[in-house]
Nucleic acid binder design. Structure first.
Length: 866
RNA sequence: GGGCGAAUAGCUCAGCUGGUCAGAGCAUCCGGUUUACACCCGGAAGGUCGGGGGUUCGAGCCCCUCUUCGCCCA
């Protein structure tokens, strides 16, 4: 084999490696999944589908790199890696992006318009209403373009994904899986519909699940308001409550105080009347009332907050809804308000926003004298939908739920136990799941009043009056999935009966996006579609994800798998931290501190960016620091240059070593053997670290060795390596043996530069090569690594002497005295010729044994330069 | 208020079950045009390991407590 076949470039560069090799990998199917392998040989990864309507930032780049490190390691260990990529295009983020991008909005009442073209100059403020089908077409069009951009970025980054295995959360396969899983939940009684108080976002006009809540500070004011009771002797007595929401007085159903609160004990069981409306209100006791808050007695409404819901449920209070889904006061005067003045007041509130209604109420309370003092401003915690900017209202609506343990202690215990079956990286993250499950207080609300999502495979019969019969839904047949009930008629009906009395109507809602992504293992593994694949990949081996979505994605995936399969969805989960800006603040678009991945990939190269990502340990947040990328780039560059030096022919000033030198029997020099002995330790450590998903530690130990290899060993031995004798052969063989092992150890981190170098002298892709194993890759005899350490130590002191003398490192050493213990000197002697050559020691050195010395004492005197 | 995590050189972090554990890289400073590499090489300086207690022959490492920061949940 001559060097012409492969060839080492004169001046290797990093530029262009991404384009060259990502194309080659695609062409040669380097990362293609071979499904003929057995379950034991397969490692399956439940990749997080990124939200395509968002933009990728450097945090994504880091966490996807972390997964890829594991994928590449497992592949080199001989596993067939099942590594698909998904795109999360389902749901509200896409709707919002389509609205802004095209300047349209969905109006489900409009008819479909074939060949519709959106406005040429989109105006986000004047969105053109279009039909649901047109809207969805635009969603599909946009996500397709977004997904191409994402794929290109992932390919450049070098993710070893099998690109033939892609899915989207809105795609047909996801629809089939989501609908089928839902139908089975219904059949087993795990999914049900209920008319119940629901957290409602008035902006997006949709129900919101507990997991999507976010508590935020919200400015408000305490209003001290009088309710009226009969005094002891028939005189009117006043009971003061403090509320931040006086507009809800008309929805008041009870006043509640703590049972031990002596101030209010006489009132329990009696009634008072509400101010302005004169409605009779019971006074009751409940332990959730806080005596030291405000006046200690609180007004319970339909519904001001989640505590009101608890009271409503536990105390069986009346339902007095006055706020509609649009967040405005309902138009009709409620039947419980009968006082003429109350009716009149209500009429002025009807149709107003809660904000306006509050102002009107405050004015009326002031006038009637029921407001005590001025409102006291406060910051209260209010629940928000995580994407919304108005506090959530609680309205009564009919929604679909899936059991998640929120209403069953047994199920909670089972789900917590599933968490125990999973290996967590890092382990402490498990407590976040356990705590979350423990704190659940309601089932999982899965219906959303949105458009771009997977529809419920459900219709409702219409009775003779045209009213839907919700108790007896018509469910789609599994064989007919995916189904769109809005355009398809249920079994036994035809479309002319849609909306007619005696006919049917479609369930108008779509499934929560988490209801689909919670099935990602079922989607990618081919549940019910490809039983052979499913058996070989499920339960999956690894779920990588961010720690911020443990309560949503991780938890809901466990729920679905537990309910459907009675198993965990995967055996391991690895949680990535965030990339934070240098001030340790989370990166977000609104703060303007987002680092765009393309820029750093272009400036430093994929290998350098991956190197930096690998330095962030699992679960730990990592501040972004561009200076760090330079270090990764330097490592990649060093790999190129050191490899070139070893492999290039002599006419290129290389050592001319090649694959033919991969012969352990040629390595005879003690220092060469010592270096390889140390490398064996590195292989062991890196392997142990990777097995524990600690890629950062694997990189650290490998990198440390590599720099020492370059700076000390290579420098010590390179003169001898040029010789044409046994000593030269020993060095060349040691070089290529060490290079082969190190390239493979670095391959998961630096896939481009290691592949490039591998191609100079080896057949096939390094990424399909075997992870180094000492028993086969490093079979040289054991040698005390102290030989190398001693030589490196003395060489460092010689360099130091030249540095202090401010002379060139080329300067010859005239006097050299080394003092150390006899044993240490013995080790040094085994490599002393190399030390003398590397240090340019021309004079005869003096070696002085001294058992009292610790380490080496070196005195080196450079010769004066002429 | 509860849970989890973190606090080690100017910066980013290693320091595994207590005994060469006071380290690395970056930045800084000094020096070197060295036929692998100026996208380089060598060298130096830098910290009473957040504060206070305790356990121990011995503590960044274990226990208690306080302070600060981050995330999650109330």
């Amino acid at each position: 084999m001559t060097s012409e076949t492969f060839g080492v470039p004169e001046k290797p560069v990093l530029e262009g490696l991404e384009a060259t090799w990502s194309a080659r990998w695609a062409e040669q199917g380097t990362y293609a999944f071979d499904r003929s392998r057995s379950r034991e040989e397969i490692f399956s990864i439940d990749t997080p589908p990124p939200t395509v309507s968002g933009s990728l930032h450097v945090g994504h780049v880091f966490s996807y790199t972390h997964t890829d490190l594991i994928a590449r390691y497992q592949r080199m260990r001989g596993k067939e890696v099942f590594y698909p990529m998904g795109w999360d295009d389902n749901g509200l983020p896409t709707e919002r992006r389509v609205q802004n991008f095209f300047g349209v909005r969905c109006d489900p009442t409009l008819p479909y318009e074939a060949g519709y073209t959106p406005p040429a100059e989109p105006d986000a403020k004047r969105q053109v209403p279009i039909s649901r089908r047109n809207f969805i077409e635009l969603c599909n069009q946009l996500v397709e373009e977004d997904e191409k951009v994402f794929e290109q970025l992932w390919r450049t980054l070098g993710l070893s994904v099998d690109w033939s295995q892609q899915y989207t959360t809105i795609g047909d396969e996801s629809q089939v899986v989501s609908q089928r899983a839902f139908l089975r939940n219904v059949a087993r009684g795990e999914a049900y519909q209920q008319d119940a108080p629901t957290l409602w976002d008035v902006t997006y006009q949709t129900a919101v699940a507990q997991a999507e809540l976010e508590a935020r500070e919200y400015p408000g004011a305490y209003h001290r308001v009088a309710f009226h009771g009969p005094g002891a002797d028939g005189e009117a007595a006043q009971v003061f409550i403090e509320t931040t929401r006086p507009e809800l007085i008309g929805a008041c159903v009870a006043l509640i105080a703590h049972p031990d609160d002596e101030r209010y004990q006489p009132l329990f069981g009696t009634t008072v009347t509400s101010p302005l409306f004169g409605v009779e209100i019971p006074v009751v006791a409940h332990t959730a009332a806080e005596p030291d808050k405000g006046s200690g007695i609180v007004m319970c409404c339909t519904f001001g907050d989640l505590t009101d819901v608890i009271w409503w449920r536990e105390l069986q209070l009346a339902n007095r809804t006055i706020i509609g889904r649009d967040g405005r006061i309902l138009p009709d005067v409620p039947k419980w308000i009968t006082e003429p003045s109350g009716v009149e007041l209500y009429a002025t509130l009807a149709g107003k926003t809660t904000f306006t209604a509050r102002e009107l109420m405050v004015a009326a309370l002031k006038e009637s004298g029921d407001l005590d003092g001025d409102p006291k401003p406060t910051q209260r915690m209010a629940n928000f939908y995580e994407r919304g900017d108005k506090p959530l209202e609680i309205v009564s609506t009919r929604q679909w739920y899936i059991a998640n343990g929120g209403r069953s202690a047994d199920l909670r215990a089972e789900l917590i136990a599933r968490g125990d079956e999973i290996e967590w990286v890092p382990t402490y993250m498990q407590s976040r799941l356990t705590n979350w499950i423990g704190g659940l207080n309601g089932d999982w609300l899965v219906s959303r009043q949105r458009f771009f999502g997977i529809p419920f495979p459900v219709w409702y019969r219409l009775d003779a009056a045209g009213e839907p019969v919700y108790d007896d839904p018509i469910l789609a047949d599994e064989a007919s999935l995916p189904v769109d009930p809005a355009s398809q008629a249920p079994p036994g009906f035809d479309d002319s009966q849609r909306g007619e009395p005696g006919g049917f109507m479609a369930d108008p809602d779509v499934l929560d996006t988490w209801a689909t992504s919670s099935l990602s293992p079922q989607i990618v593994c081919g549940w019910e579609r490809d039983p052979e694949l499913f058996a070989k990949t499920f339960p999956m081996d690894l779920r990588p994800q961010g720690h911020d979505i443990i309560r949503t994605w991780l938890f809901s995936t466990i729920v679905r798998s537990h309910l459907e399969h009675g198993s965990v969805p995967w055996t391991h989960t690895a949680l990535s931290g965030f990339v934070v800006d240098p001030d340790r603040k989370k990166m977000s678009k609104s703060k303007g501190n987002v680092v765009v991945p393309d820029e750093i990939l272009t400036s430093y190269g994929a290998d350098a960016v991956r190197w930096r990502a690998a330095g962030a340990r699992p679960g730990a947040d990592s501040p972004f620091d561009e200076a760090q990328m330079k270090v990764g780039r330097r490592l990649a560059m060093k790999v190129l240059n050191a490899s070139k030096f070893v492999l290039a022919p002599e006419e290129q000033y290389g050592l001319g070593a090649d694959a033919a030198h991969l012969d352990a029997s040629l390595v005879t020099e003690p220092i060469d053997l010592a270096m390889l002995t140390r490398l064996r330790g590195v292989v062991d450590e890196a392997t142990v670290a990777f097995d524990a998903y600690d890629y950062a530690a694997a990189l650290e130990v490998t990198e440390k060795f590599f720099w020492d290899f370059c700076d000390d060993y290579l420098e010590l031995v390179k003169e001898r390596a040029r010789r044409d004798d046994a000593g030269g052969a020993s060095a060349k063989s040691a070089f290529v043996l060490a290079l082969s092992v190190q390239l493979r150890l670095l391959a998961p981190f630096l896939p481009y530069v290691t592949e490039e170098v591998w191609s100079w002298w080896q057949e096939g892709s390094i990424h399909r090569a075997a992870w180094p194993v000492n028993a086969t890759d490093l079979t040289t005899p054991e040698q005390d690594p102290g030989v190398l350490a001693a030589a490196a130590r003395v060489l460092a002191d010689i360099r130091g002497a030249k540095s202090v003398a401010k002379v060139s490192q080329k300067t010859e050493i005239g006097t050299l005295t080394v003092t150390a213990t006899a044993d240490a000197l013995k080790l040094l002697a085994l490599a002393f010729d190399d030390v003398r050559a590397a240090g340019r020691v021309t004079a005869t050195p003096t070696l002085t044994p001294d058992e009292s010395t610790d380490g080496f004492a070196v005195e080196a005197v450079p010769l004066p330069t002429s």
